[in-house]
Every structure is written in C-alpha cells, then in structure tokens.
Amino acid sequence: MWVSTLKRYAGIVFYRTLAGIKSEGRQNYLGYLWFLLEPMLSTLVLYIAFSQITGKGGPEYVVFLILGMITWQWFESSCMLGATAIKAKYGVLTQFNLPKYIFPIVSIMVNTWKFLCVFVVILVTAAVFGYTPNFHYVYLPGLMLLQLLLIIGVTLPLTIGATLMNDLLTVVSSIFRLLFFMSGIFFDASLVPENLKSLFYANPMAVFIESYRAVVIHNQPPQMSHLAEAGLVSMAFLALGMILHAYYDKKILKLTNA
C-alpha cells in the first residue's frame, strides 16, 4: 500500500512540476521562449559586468564566473522558494491530506527545470568561448543529481523551521549571503590558504562549483573525495529533514500563523 501511496505522491510532484512550468510559460507573451531567453539575458548581463568591471577579463574568467553564479543561484533560489512553500500552500494543505514536503519539492523541481535551461545556454556560451564539450561531461548529470540532493536536503528542514518561525528566513538569507562569498564564486579554490582548505571544502556548494568548473573549463574529472564529503553533508541534511517532517507532518498546520 505504501508503495502506491508513494507513487501517487511522486505523480503529484511530477504533474505539479509540469503544471508549474506550463503555468510560468503561459504568463508571458513570449511564453516558453523565456526559459531560454532569460538565461541568455542574464548571461549577457554577467558577461558585460564581469568582462568590463573586473580587470581580469578574458573568456576563461567569464565562463568561470557564470558557472559559479548559476550553480549558486539554483541552490539559493530553490531553498528560499521551498522554505516558504508550506505557508504559500497553507490553504491547499488544510483541505487535502498531503505530506508537507510535496510543495517544497515541487518548487525545487520547477526551479531545477529553469536551471537546466540556463545550463544549456551556459554550455553553448562556453563552447563559443572555446570550451567545447568534452568527454568529462559524463560527470555532469551525476553532479547535478548530487546537488539536487543537497538542495532537497537543505530545504526540507528549512521549510519546517520557516513555517514554525518566520524569523528563520531572515537569518538563513544572511547565512546564504555569507556562503555566497565563501563558495568560491569569484575566486578559485587554489587561492584559499592551505590551513583553511578543509573548512572551505566542508561547504558542499564550494565543492560543486569547483566540480562544474573542472569538467567544463579544465576538461578534468571532479575531485571524488570532495564530492563524497559533499554527499555526506547532503545526506545528513536529508536525514534531519525526514525526521522533522515525520514529526511535524500532522502538527505543523496547527502551529503556524499563515
């Protein structure tokens, strides 16, 4: 029985995600075209900003920055959207008996779809700058899956916390801001002092950003030991999230002020 229930939840997530994508596509005159136009625009903006303002310039630095930025954005915007998803769907959740993780995961998946579109644009941009697709691209799906695991892992406890206490969002967005500067988006990991390296790599986002760059720019496999660590951190968050959801699933709507 629980298998069919799980299948139904997976179906809800899948079709809600499709619906979310369709729904976004229908909001604008240009519709689905925006899934490609928007990343092209933002890539252009980042290119103009970074190639002109930073003294470094050069195609390598631009691709380097853009890869870091979009990887980070996928993480941050998914977590923040997912964190508020229970409150946003309060009206639906008080009518239907649904697990509370469904809508956060739907937000994450819609956002992931957008990331994939962006990523394609970035790969094309990289190719234009001379970083043509290489054999190590086979690592990309695995990398994305691992990052998705981290995103879901961080979002699950966060959405419970933010539903119970709104204040948490403000604190977390500050923490994200801090991580944004510490994940090596603007600098290469080789610039991190030796004694701080283990701390730097304890942040899974730093690991992921470096891994994408290794594959796309340097035509190298990612550092497996770092990825294993990042995977462990993701699993820890995921476990915490599952415990919290099991405990609060039937309680949280009675405790919130949505």
């Binding site: 619906a19 979310g20 369709k22 229908r26 639906v92 239907f96 649904l98």
Partner: peptide, 30 residues
Amino acid sequence: ELLSLGVGFEGNLTGEENAILNGMLMGKSR
C-alpha cells in the same frame, strides 16, 4: 476526503488540467 471546491486551482492552467491535478490531490491517480 473533505469536499472542497476549487481549492488549489492554478489560474494559468485549463479547466481540464486543473480537474486532473485536483483529483490527484484528492487521492486519485491520474
């Protein structure tokens, strides 16, 4: 199941799409 009318509809989706999604929320398969 609680009878609820029109809760959870997505404005940008058609009546048909919403009917299917809503039924899934109410515990039915697609």
